[in-house]
Nucleic acid binder design. Structure first.
Length: 264
DNA sequence: TCAAATGTTTGATC
DNA sequence: GGATCAAACATTTG
């Protein structure tokens, strides 16, 4: 579920509640979510205080007085202060006041500790909300023979976009999902950058898109799903021209676009 | 009833 | 290096 706007919303929700708290103890129950030894990770975080919570692409970075606790929500992860525990609870951090609960039915999420940032995370591309237009255009030009949609999903190219907002950004910019990235004209590349930033900002303002699992707090979901113009609208008329939105599979991902408004 | 779909990353293979 | 595909898992949808 969670892409940049959803993760940003979770961070904003959780940060004020966690900052200044101390982790008393932690327990884990999923070998998928926690890859290292449970006891070792619990020892690492026990007794540490939380300095702040930030976002790195789709990663949630909980800064401790020593090292960082990284949480990735995968597709169905939920990170909630004083959240309800249940059959899908994979981690619980007892705090000096309250507790931080991680639920994740599909277990595609990850929780790990790192001194700084793990290499694979540090090496990701620039953040989709922070990248400048010039850098974005330059990076597009550098990709020979890459289709734009899968490229936007590649976190090593740009961090933060996922399937929903890649489709939305391309729709807003009028670019066909399988246009050749390096061959986009400068004005079209610039338009894509502007569209992407605008789409992400609007989604954050609406606290993300709640399509199936995503909530940012107990019982609270975002509302941006009501404003999506391409994603999930297969067969419905395009807001701009009325042609039915088409769905194809590109790079193994469902891809929604207007065959009339979006050109290669 | 069953295949296919779902926002994620990864690791293997070409 | 980079693209592509399958896999990890649980649940819902057609």
């Amino acid at each position: 579920m969670p892409e940049l706007p959803e993760v940003e919303t979770v961070v904003r929700t959780v940060a004020p509640k966690l900052t200044g708290r101390r982790i008393v103890s932690a327990r884990f129950s999923s070998k998928h979510v926690v890859r290292e030894n449970f006891a070792r990770l619990a020892r690492r975080v026990a007794g540490r205080s939380i300095h702040g919570v930030t976002r790195h692409g789709k990663f949630i970075v909980i800064a401790l007085d020593r090292g960082n606790l990284l949480v990735h929500l995968g597709m169905t992860g939920r990170l909630i202060v004083d959240g309800r525990t249940g059959p899908y609870t994979r981690a619980v951090f007892e705090l000096d006041e309250g507790e931080l609960v991680y639920n994740d039915p599909r277990q595609f999420g990850r929780i790990e500790w790192s001194e700084g940032l793990p290499d694979r995370v540090a090496r990701l591309g620039p953040d989709a909300l922070a990248v400048t237009e010039a850098e974005f255009v330059a990076r597009l030009k550098a990709r020979r023979r890459a289709q734009i949609k899968p490229l936007l999903l590649n976190q090593a190219f740009l961090r933060g976009l996922g399937n929903i907002y890649a489709d939305e950004a391309l729709f807003a910019a009028g670019i066909h999902p399988h246009a050749d990235a390096a061959r986009l004209s400068r004005p079209r590349a610039r338009r894509l950058h502007a569209a992407m930033v605008e789409v992400l900002r609007a989604a954050i303002a609406n606290k993300g898109s709640s399509i199936s699992d995503y909530v940012y707090d107990e019982g609270r979901g975002g509302s941006h799903q009501q404003h999506l113009l391409a994603y999930g609208r297969t067969g419905e008329p395009c807001e701009r021209c009325g042609a039915p939105i088409r769905r194809i599979v590109l790079g193994g991902r469902g891809t929604h676009y207007c065959p009339k408004c979006q050109r290669v």
